Amino acid sequence: MANCVKCGASNLGMGRTDLVIVDETWYCSRCLKSTLGTVSCSKCGNQPFRSGEHFKTINGEVLCTDCMEKQGIMKKYDYVMSSVMSRPRAARTTQAPRGLAALGTMKDLLEQNLEPGEEVEVAVLGNTGEALACSSKHLFILKAGMASGSLTGRKCIKYRWNQITGAEIKAGALYGLIEIQGNGLPSHDARNISQVKQAENAVTFLIAKQGEFEDALSTIKQYI
């Protein structure tokens, strides 16, 4: 149904993560705290992940969906659906790191596949269990969990630059993908993002992170 606007965690599937909407933007608990700090309803004191409510700033005051309904402002269902259907917005954060630090728990997977002395130039996280990185020698597609084909799986697909003929970002309404092109590599459709998640030549992402992937694409094209 939705992904955290920062880390891409999904509220669907076996590894689902609880999400909350704050001002039409979806967050997991960790990213909400690091991005907006403590959020609470100015009327009743409800807080995210404690009450089951979502939140919206109205006339300078943060209200939970329960208080919005009681005041006749908006029904909870309508607010949730409008947030699902609207184009995700970037969170109010500083620019994401582009090096190994950007990969979080997938950092060690990449490090295991680096050659001695090989340095990562760009690294970006996609949707849950997906990441992309590159050095002057290789481009890496990282997959973990269900994105790797099994709940506990992890794999790194490594391409030499002479194996790559192109790279492209394809964007849909809610999700996008970056596709690595080369001899025998398949093409993918951003409208069928669930079918792309396990692809070994693509990484999917929430559309709010498109800017990060466009920056990565600029670096990739320097080596093709």
Score class of each variant (00 low, 15 high):
F49R: 07
L114W: 09
P97G: 05
Q198M: 02
K6N: 13
T219N: 07
L36F: 08
T25G: 00
T219E: 15
M68D: 09
V124T: 05
R92C: 02
L125F: 05
Y223L: 03
R16D: 08
N162V: 09
Y79F: 02
V80W: 06
S86K: 06
S194Y: 07
E200T: 10
A101G: 10
T38I: 08
S42D: 13
L174E: 06
Q112N: 14
P48R: 05
L132R: 04
G166Y: 00
S148Y: 02
G166A: 04
K143L: 09
R154V: 11
I164P: 14
L139Y: 05
S150H: 04
R16E: 13
I207K: 14
A190W: 09
Y159K: 12
Q112L: 12
C44N: 12
A131I: 11
I141F: 08
A2W: 08
A91W: 01
G60T: 12
C41F: 00
G13V: 00
V203I: 14
C4D: 07
M68F: 02
E119M: 13
V124K: 04
D78H: 12
M1S: 04
R154P: 07
L19V: 01
A131G: 11
I164C: 10
E119D: 13
D78M: 07
S187G: 04
D23T: 11
V196D: 04
K75R: 15
C134A: 09
K107R: 15
Q210P: 09
E69M: 06
A208C: 12
F205P: 13
N11L: 03
G176S: 03
S83A: 14
V84Q: 14
R87I: 10
A144I: 04
G72F: 00
H188Q: 04
G145M: 11
I193M: 09
S10T: 11
R16N: 06
S194V: 07
P97A: 02
L185H: 12
C64N: 02
L206P: 15
Q210G: 06
L109H: 12
C28D: 13
S40G: 13
S51K: 03
M14G: 11
F55S: 05
T57C: 03
E130V: 01
V39D: 00
R191M: 10
V22T: 04
I58W: 03
I169K: 03
V124E: 14
D78P: 02
N46G: 08
D23R: 10
V80L: 08
N59F: 00
E61A: 15
D18L: 04
A9R: 07
A96L: 05
